[in-house]
């Protein structure tokens, strides 16, 4: 099994006709993902490369194709609206790749999603990959922008805010012959849909996930919350790395959420919380896979 998505998950793409959305739809189709619909308002009735029907609304796309998950590649000014359209249409999962959404828009989205069934991953994230059985993990479900070929089907859950740091961890595992159940990028923004803790719980409940790599970074306290839960409830083996130990306070390090403010959100505090929870600490980002494998 896996978490959040399986190779059977039927996926629609909001913003399929943009260059970014189109390119990654092609890559997902090539990976074997069930991309069943695209949504671009005003382009309903057309088709994406003769393969994927395009609809004007998410609701129409769901009715016609049975899609249950969405990937959003809509530009920042319109992305919050696109998320809420997916929520209103009753999708199980919305994965928002878009970087640069105003924080206040995300505050409104979080408020509007209270009590709704939809889970949001992101925004500003690489997305989700559940590797498949084929060569270079083809036949899996790839929602977002991750490179599919670096994965391998297996039993490690990988969880991070960042894209390339996730790829680094995945590649370290794959190079050692160790596969992944699901890899989730939750995004680098200060307000996001799904937290580290949410994903840790999902991995812990998934019988097919045997160990977890948990990658955090400076800013906020989401890593500490996940660590506290692990300390109190126990969990499968977890190895962790926190990026940003050398970042100066008060400066945003690329990600909108990666900032030490008011003395809060330091790498030192997060590493201490990890240690208190029995999470194996990778002393460098080169040691993430090795640290976990030693614990298993």
């Amino acid at each position: 099994m896996s978490i959040l998505v399986t190779p059977q998950t039927r996926v629609l793409v909001q913003g399929i006709t943009g260059s970014f959305g189109g390119r990654h739809t092609q890559l997902s189709l090539a990976y074997g993902t069930q991309i069943v619909a695209g949504v671009t308002p005003g382009k309903g009735g057309q088709s994406f490369e003769g393969k994927v029907p395009i609809f004007d609304t998410v609701g129409q796309a769901i009715r016609e194709t049975g899609a249950t998950a969405s990937a959003i590649f809509v530009p920042p000014p319109f992305a919050a609206d696109a998320i809420l359209e997916g929520v209103d249409a009753g999708l199980d999962l919305v994965v928002c790749i878009t970087e640069g959404i105003p924080i206040n828009d995300m505050i409104k989205v979080k408020r509007a999603m209270e009590g709704k069934r939809t889970r949001l991953i992101g925004p500003n994230c690489p997305g989700i990959v559940t590797p498949g059985e084929g060569e270079h993990s083809q036949g899996g479900c790839r929602i977002g922008i991750s490179p599919g070929y670096i994965h391998k089907k297996g039993h490690i859950g990988v969880l991070s805010r960042s894209g390339t740091l996730t790829y680094e961890a995945v590649w370290q595992l794959t190079c050692r012959g160790v596969g992944q159940s699901t890899c989730v990028g939750i995004g680098g923004d200060p307000v996001n849909g799904t937290s580290h803790l949410d994903v840790v719980k999902l991995f812990n409940e998934d019988p097919d996930t045997h160990g977890i790599i948990l990658i955090g970074e400076i800013g906020g306290s989401a890593e500490e919350e996940a660590a506290d839960w692990i300390r109190q409830h126990g969990c499968k083996p977890v190895a962790g790395f926190i990026a940003g130990a050398t970042a100066p306070p008060g400066r945003r390090m690329g990600h909108a959420g990666a900032i030490i403010s008011g003395g809060k959100g330091t790498a030192a505090a997060k590493i201490a919380a990890f240690r208190a929870a029995g999470i194996g600490i990778a002393s460098t980002p080169s040691d993430m896979a090795e640290t976990l494998l030693k614990m298993m």
Partner: peptide, 30 residues
């Protein structure tokens, strides 16, 4: 000079880990 914010931070960290000191954060993007 790194691609991706997370990897760029981690690169600064690993330079320090081996006894050096980073001159900058630089993410050239995806």
């Amino acid at each position: 000079l790194v691609n991706g914010a997370g990897l760029a931070m981690a690169t600064m960290d690993i330079i320090q880990h081996f006894g050096g000191s980073p001159a900058n954060f630089l993410d050239v993007g995806g």
